[in-house]
């Protein structure tokens, strides 16, 4: 080091050093950019492909669902629960104080029409399908759904009340096309 700086006064060796440093740096930077350019598309190929994304909406006819009943439909390969809630269930969901909830959300925010509760039927813990849609299923301590995998309890608004799940059952994007037709996605 000390030697190089001494030679620096004469010009030649010092310029040689800096030019080499520059070339190493430039080559290294190009190499890094090239690596990223190669790796990026490889990683991107693993993302959901266009056809998978295209399956992103489903229309369902809800006219046949009796009060108190629920059905399961498939949206993006996941189950979606559509529950025709009874008045008691709506009342129960609405009288809960937000302070009692882990993931604070009012029932009004979660249901566009009070009697129709539409949820992605995937436990927010590790992705099992909670029980409670079929007649005779256990519905947990809060009358909604119960996830058998690690014991998460959801209430009549699909909100997490007990167990390891961190969040409420997700509400998918949906709109009522008419009184009996719902578009999910």
């Amino acid at each position: 080091m000390a030697e190089t700086s001494q030679h620096g006064e004469h010009g030649a060796p010092a310029t040689g050093e800096t030019r080499r440093d520059f070339l190493i740096l430039a080559a290294g930077a190009m190499g890094a950019i090239a690596t990223i350019a190669v790796v990026w598309p490889l990683i991107e190929t693993m993302n959901p492909a266009a056809d998978t994304l295209a399956l992103s909406s489903t229309e369902i006819d809800i006219s046949g669902i009796e009060v108190g009943q629920a059905i399961v439909v498939v949206w993006r390969g996941k189950p979606v629960f559509v529950r025709h809630r009874a008045p008691e269930e709506i009342e129960e969901a609405r009288k809960v104080s937000l302070d009692d909830l882990g993931d604070k959300q009012s029932d009004e925010e979660r249901a566009k029409k009070a009697e129709w509760l539409i949820l992605v039927g995937v436990c927010t813990h590790l992705g099992c399908i909670p029980l409670g849609t079929k007649q005779g299923d256990p519905r947990g301590d809060f009358g909604g759904w119960f996830c058998p995998c690690h014991g998460s309890h959801y209430d009549t608004s699909g909100r997490i009340r007990k167990g390891p799940a961190p969040r409420n059952l997700e509400v998918p994007p949906y709109e009522f096309l008419s009184d009996t037709l719902v578009k999910i996605g």
Binding site: M46, P48, T52, G77, K78, H125, L126, G127
Partner: peptide, 23 residues
């Protein structure tokens, strides 16, 4: 694969990337 979704912020994106879909 859902264990990955526990990672803060990027967890769910990462999980969908692993799946190559939404499940």
């Amino acid at each position: 694969t859902n264990l990955v979704s526990a990672i803060p912020w990027i967890g769910e994106t990462l999980r969908d990337w692993l799946w190559g879909g939404f499940s």
